[in-house]
Design a protein around this nucleic acid. Structure first.
Lengths: 265, 265
DNA sequence: GAAAGCCATGCGCTTCATGCATACCAAACC
DNA sequence: GGTTTGGTATGCATGAAGCGCATGGCTTTC
């Protein structure tokens, strides 16, 4: 800012306030009593503007903020917790929540980032980013007659009892499984969580399907085997608001998720 | 301010800060976490700006401030104290000082308002405002032989002892007095202050000249008489910086002085 | 299905602020 | 005493930024 500009601004301010702020002395200017107070108060104003900007930068620089993630059981087994762990190491000031809710929560403002699979349908207005592709294996008790095979023909599981979950991704698209089996699976148990399902399988009470993400927390006594025919793979996605409506923390979390997803390949 | 202007400003601010401040929801906007903080801090900034303005208005509205006046003994006798009294009644928040210094102090910044007479010379760059014209009388002891006259011929005071002060305005231009007397006055005493001079006069130790302003505090035992020929009158002025460089308090004091001067006529 | 709210954007305009060059003033210096 | 120097105010022209109006797009509501 050049000197004439300052000169004008000061003169204009003096006119607006109706008070002289500077006395013109031989070798420059000198604040009047009012001017000294004006300088003091102006510093206060600048200080406040500074803290405003600093607090906003804290959001932009990820020293504070909040990300709310909705996810699904198999992603919660290992992938999302690992992402949260990495995120908190990188940005300890940012709060991370795992919330109940689905992808519709993004539009409603209840969720910042939703984990999805390609078997889900995403609304039009959210952006989905592919993270990784996962395979499906059949999970058997290590005492199961077919446990010694390297690849399990699905038809031979026709008579087995199947453990399903309430979440639709638990056994995958049932029609595909039914086709491979040669008929609808015989569902012996329904269990919400992976721990319970694996416990049932380990106890020899049935077989089930486990995907890559859920396989990270495999219980002793349970073995995984590829199937013939192969079960279809499934893409895992993250859904967020479009980039201009995304918070810096959400963007950062998305980056952590894609990085982590890449390392899974 | 119209809605599109606000919309643009918010968008621009969000771009500058790198943080979204409002989420666009179906029926309007809603502050984000960062936006809520920004609003809070913005209120702080506005508060500070408000106090800045309020404190400046306190100067403009004469609820605070400072006037430094330099004056001379006869004006200090009654006129200036009365003006200060009236000023403080009108503007109790404004501090008033009587300072040592002369009209040169205005330029130097030590004095805001200087009392002058037409017998003084004022620098070019100050503004002088006439307040009143004062007459001069001869002061005699009430026991003085000429005290019974309504008008005292100055020639008859040729042989009297005169009391002068160190300040040049005490006996007025000596040459005029000398001409009226028919010769230089015989100076018997020199006394700085009016009280002392009047005491000497009351004690019959000499005579002196007293002007209108000094006459306000006339001591018992001293009488004032017009002279023949009449002594010249003298204008009393106030000198300040030019109006655009004047503080509101100085302007107000100048107004009080002119009002009070007018009431002296 | 139509109407009403509400935010974002294109467009044209005005206003404000800035920078450059310069005038002006007083002090300091040779 | 004249000249140089440090510093502020002003005329002028350029440039940018902000505003208002009108409009578009989207959603909710009657």
């Amino acid at each position: 800012m050049t000197q004439p500009a300052v000169s004008r601004q000061v003169a204009s301010l003096e006119r607006k306030l109706g008070v002289g702020l500077f006395r013109r002395v031989p070798r420059g200017v000198e604040p009047t009593a009012a001017g000294a107070i004006a300088i003091e108060e102006a510093r206060n104003v600048l200080d406040r503007l500074g803290t405003l900007q600093a607090r906003m930068e804290a959001f932009a620089d990820l020293r504070t903020g909040h990300v709310r993630i909705s996810s699904f059981p198999s992603a919660n087994t290992d992938f999302v917790p690992a992402a949260i762990r990495r995120f908190r190491d990188l940005y300890p000031g940012v709060e991370v929540s795992l919330v109940q809710g689905d992808v519709a929560g993004i539009r409603a403002g209840d969720v910042d980032l939703a984990m999805l699979t390609t078997w889900d349908t995403a609304p039009e207005e959210v952006v989905t980013v592919p993270l990784l592709d996962e395979e499906h294996w059949v999970a058997l008790s290590e005492a199961h007659p077919l446990a010694s095979l390297t690849t399990v023909p699905l038809r031979q599981l026709r008579a087995d009892s199947w453990v399903e979950g309430s979440h639709p991704d638990c056994l995958g698209p049932l029609d595909i499984l039914a086709e491979a089996l040669g008929g609808p699976p015989r569902v012996g148990f329904t269990c919400e969580d992976w721990t319970g399902k694996q416990a049932l399988v380990a106890a020899g009470m049935g077989v089930t399907i486990i995907s890559t993400l859920a396989a990270a927390a495999l219980r002793p006594g349970v073995v995984l085997r590829p199937t013939a025919p192969r079960l279809p793979s499934r893409g895992v996605l993250a859904a967020t608001a479009p980039s201009q409506a995304r918070s810096p923390a959400t963007t950062a979390m998305l980056r952590v998720l894609t990085d982590l997803g890449a390392s899974y390949r």
